[in-house]
C-alpha cells in the first residue's frame, strides 16, 4: 500500500514518507449529554527521522492524540497509519504486535517494572518480541544515556532522572519506527530534563529515530524540529525550528 499521494500539503517539504499519519482523527468519550469531544478531526503527519513536539493547553487532547496514534486507544472516527499499516480496524492482538514491533514509549512516570534491573528493563521489549538485542546497539545506547555503571540496579535504587534515562534506552533499543513520549521530563528538574531531551535529539540525529513528544514546556519543545499546537481537540498551528521564545509566543497567542 502506498501512502505518498495522501500526505497532507503542509509536510510536503519532507522528502521521505511520513512515519505516522492521522486523517480526520476524532475521539469522543462517553455518550449523549456527557460526551466529551477530545479530538474533533485532526489531520497530522509525522515525518520519518523527525523530532516533533505536540503542545497545547491542558485538556486540549494531547495525550488522547498520542494514545490514538500509538494504538493504545481506539478512535471514534478517522484513520491512523503507522508506516504503511492502518491502525483503525485492527484487533487487540494485531495492535499489540504492532506496538511490539514498531513503537516505543516513554511515559511521564512509572516507566519501569520494579522487579527488573535497569538492564532487564531496557531489554524487556526485545524479550517480549522474542528478539535478540543487537549487542553493538545496546552498548551504544547504554553509552549514550550514560548508564553503564547502573545496569544492575533496580528502579527503586535509581533517581528519577536515571529512571527516565533507562526508559529512553528501552525505547531506543528495539529501533522502533516511532517513539511516543508523553511529557517525559514532566517530573524532572531542568538539568535532568535537559539531559533526557538531548539524548532524544541525539538519537534523532545520529540514529535517524522518529520521535513524537507531548510536552507543556516551551524549552523542551524547542529541542524538537517542529512543534504542532492543539486546542480544543483541533490542530490549530505549527512551528518549525522552534526556539523557547517563539513557542511561548505562540502559546500566549493561542490562550488569548
Amino acid at each position: 500500500m502506498t501512502i505518498t499521494g495522501e500526505v497532507g500539503a503542509w509536510n510536503a517539504r519532507e522528502n521521505t514518507a511520513p512515519a505516522v499519519t492521522a486523517r480526520g482523527l476524532t475521539k469522543v468519550y462517553g455518550q449523549g449529554d456527557t460526551a466529551v469531544h477530545a479530538l474533533r478531526g485532526v489531520d497530522v503527519s509525522f515525518a520519518t527521522g523527525a523530532f516533533t513536539a505536540i503542545m497545547g493547553p491542558s485538556g486540549s487532547g494531547k495525550s488522547t492524540l498520542m494514545h490514538c496514534l500509538a494504538g493504545l486507544d481506539t478512535v471514534s472516527a478517522g484513520q491512523v497509519h503507522i508506516g504503511d499499516v492502518e491502525l483503525t480496524g485492527l484487533g487487540d492482538k494485531q495492535l499489540t504486535l504492532l506496538r511490539r514491533e514498531r513503537i516505543g514509549f516513554i511515559f511521564q512516570a512509572f516507566n519501569l517494572l520494579p522487579t527488573l534491573t535497569a538492564e532487564q528493563n531496557i531489554r524487556l521489549p526485545l524479550e517480549i518480541a522474542g528478539r535478540q538485542a543487537d549487542g553493538e546497539l545496546f552498548d551504544r545506547v547504554v553509552e549514550t544515556v550514560g548508564l553503564r555503571d547502573r545496569l544492575g540496579h533496580k528502579p527503586t535504587e535509581l533517581s528519577g532522572g536515571q529512571q527516565q534515562r533507562v526508559a529512553v534506552a528501552r525505547a531506543l533499543i528495539s529501533k522502533p519506527q516511532v517513539i511516543f513520549a508523553d511529557e517525559p521530563t514532566g517530573n524532572l528538574d531542568s538539568r535532568s530534563g535537559a539531559e533526557i531531551l538531548s539524548f532524544l535529539r541525539t538519537s534523532v540525529r545520529e540514529l535517524g529515530q522518529t520521535i513524537v513528544m507531548v510536552t507543556h514546556d516551551p524549552v523542551a519543545a524547542s529541542y524538537a524540529g517542529r512543534v504542532v499546537f492543539l486546542r480544543d481537540g483541533l490542530l490549530v498551528s505549527e512551528l518549525t525550528e522552534p526556539s523557547p521564545q517563539s513557542v511561548l509566543d505562540m502559546l500566549i497567542k493561542l490562550e488569548a
Binding site: T96, L97, R99, P114, I128
Partner: peptide, 16 residues
C-alpha cells in the same frame, strides 16, 4: 494496574 498497562503498551498481548 499501571505495571500491567506498561507491559501491554510495550507489546505484551492479553493472553500473555
Amino acid at each position: 494496574t499501571r505495571e500491567s498497562a506498561l507491559l501491554r503498551a510495550l507489546g505484551l498481548t492479553r493472553p500473555q
